[in-house]
Write a protein that binds this DNA or RNA. Structure first.
Lengths: 334, 334
DNA sequence: CTGTTAGCGCGTTCAA
DNA sequence: TTGAACGCGCTAACAG
């Protein structure tokens, strides 16, 4: 039923090795026979079988990427960066959603490895011992993308989340704010959660502002949780004059909550966050936020992976990309 | 280096056929030998090679899905529906971004087919003759997801975009609006573009409202293009009293543009759209929009594909899911 | 420049 | 209930 390389060989009157050569762009083929082969391919509608090829060559020219949540704009942007570089190097990517669940992450890593991907890009939350366990059983390179492991054993590319948060909060402090609330992610999440919280505390600390537990709420990164958290702050006897949100989406929730209470951003309360997702410009007032170079994180990590796959030497296996605060309209001096 | 089924066989003191049986849950294995084999697998850290398996069995338990734009929330939601059902039936999915470009779509379809996926889910814009061409060369089932082909030759699941637009505009008309502008998608896009535009015209027509070319702008589905289009309308001598946007994101752009002009939604201008993406509730005022059951479109199309892959008979290969207008805060009577 | 020949790792008869 | 042997479609030496 399906036409194989043998059929093409017969049709073109050559051996299968020759067909294989022209399909793989091997230069050692007389232009004339190459032409004959191409014609036979055309006539028969031959389509190379990537599975057989993968088995024979032990390469699949595909890299697996595990993404925590496909409907999260941040990760989608990272994925675009990955994609573009992958295309450039002629790798296909197979994207697997892991739903932010650890066991699904592990499962997905394993099926990807079973499928014999040539490399793996892991973006996700915490990198636990179980993850490392799964990674260790791999004989293809792996790079962490928008995450890091504690020990720094695995190549990774990310920003410095702690510093990004520090800079965001310092921006607020520079504008004269003293009562600064935080909408945090879960502290189990080392990057977007814990590290950003640490940055918040350090900024307060270096400014000599006392840390106040009542001014911190933990959200789940969603819009609604930003609203919930903000509601809590607005019911406080001493309302904060500014809010730092661990992510844009929660910040937007906070802004709308403030507005729903009849207050104004930024004149009544300033809001800043980290991410600079596309949504940051899609609110009024537009969100002041620390830009995380999502696309670049994807691109650089993919580039790093290609080097690893080709066994080229890499000067640095832990790369930290710069962040930058983008001033828009949601922060004002007090 | 890598441990194969032979290694396991030797370690367990059985033949490779037996190992294959236990790995594939074949019941014809004595419990005791099964146990021995499992232990050997454990000891050696054996991981079945899906590529070899695919070659031998001619099945990959993988379905390819081509997605037009991974950073579009609508498609991401469809993808979740696909995912969930795929998991339920033990298929892996390999997601390929096609960047909304026709040639990339074709290329991606071909590589997916080369990779011997067991089935293909295509979501995208227009289904051209070239697409059909590529589909015809496939010997695995294909279903269109959130699109349809003109001739209806290929199984598909979608909503009735024309009717959805008609209902949206009719909603406006029912509220007394007579001057209704439209922010359309490109007319080359049969579903989100052309069909929705047709629905707009038909609604006007059945209400006896004359169609006015000046009240239609074509956007590119992005926020900014919603702003641009709205700007145009606001500069008109006769400003419309309501706007119908082909998608939520452009509608949000329109809302913000109106607000930036110092006008109010909905008291000055009403806005309605189609999609009901998560963002619809993430604006003030919250967006009134026609709900497209994105998740269900994904789920149903994947379910349909599983049937096709198992060669089960399907009663209906063209399925049209219902839509519904969701009233929120952006539309008011005039 | 071209053809022959081994496998790649596994599923699957067919016998035993 | 188990094993031996063949073949899936292709790449990669090796010869010529």
């Amino acid at each position: 039923m399906t036409v194989t390389i043998y059929d093409v060989a017969r049709e073109a009157g050559v051996s299968m090795a020759t067909v294989s050569r022209v399909v793989n762009n091997n230069p050692n083929v007389k232009p004339q026979t190459r032409k004959k082969v191409f014609e036979a391919i055309e006539r028969l509608g031959y389509r190379p079988n990537a599975v057989a090829r993968g088995l024979a060559s032990k390469k699949t020219t595909t890299v697996g990427v595990v993404i925590p949540d496909i409907s999260n704009a941040i990760f989608a942007e990272v994925a675009r960066g990955i994609e573009d570089i992958a295309n450039m190097y002629h790798y296909n990517i197979i994207l697997c959603n892991a739903d932010k669940k650890k066991d699904k992450e592990i499962r997905v890593i394993n099926t990807l490895l079973e499928k014999q991907v040539d490399g793996l890009l892991f973006m996700g939350g915490a990198v636990t011992e179980e993850h490392l366990q799964a990674f260790r059983t791999s004989n293809v390179p792996i790079v962490l993308c928008a995450t890091t492991d504690e020990q720094g054993a695995i190549p990774s590319v990310d920003i410095d989340h702690e510093a990004a948060a520090f800079d965001a909060v310092s921006e607020l402090i520079a504008k004269g704010h003293k009562s600064i609330a935080m909408i945090s992610g879960t502290l189990q999440d080392p990057a977007n959660g814990y590290a950003r919280f640490q940055g918040y505390k350090r900024a307060l600390d270096t400014a000599g502002i006392a840390y106040n537990e009542d001014l911190v709420r933990v959200g789940n990164y969603r819009y609604e949780s930003g609203i919930e958290a903000m509601k809590y702050f607005l019911e406080l006897a001493d309302k904060p004059s500014a809010v730092f949100s661990a992510t844009d989406e929660m910040a937007i929730g906070a802004i709308h909550c403030i507005q729903d209470y009849g207050l104004k951003v930024p004149s009544d309360i300033s809001v800043i966050s980290v991410d600079n997702s596309r949504m940051a410009s899609m609110v009024r007032p537009q969100l002041t936020t620390v830009a995380q170079p999502m696309y670049d994180i994807g691109a650089v990590s993919m580039r790093l992976l290609t080097k690893l796959m080709k066994k080229e030497s890499v000067e640095q296996s832990k790369v930290v990309l710069p962040h930058e605060v983008i001033s828009r309209q949601s922060v004002v001096s007090v």
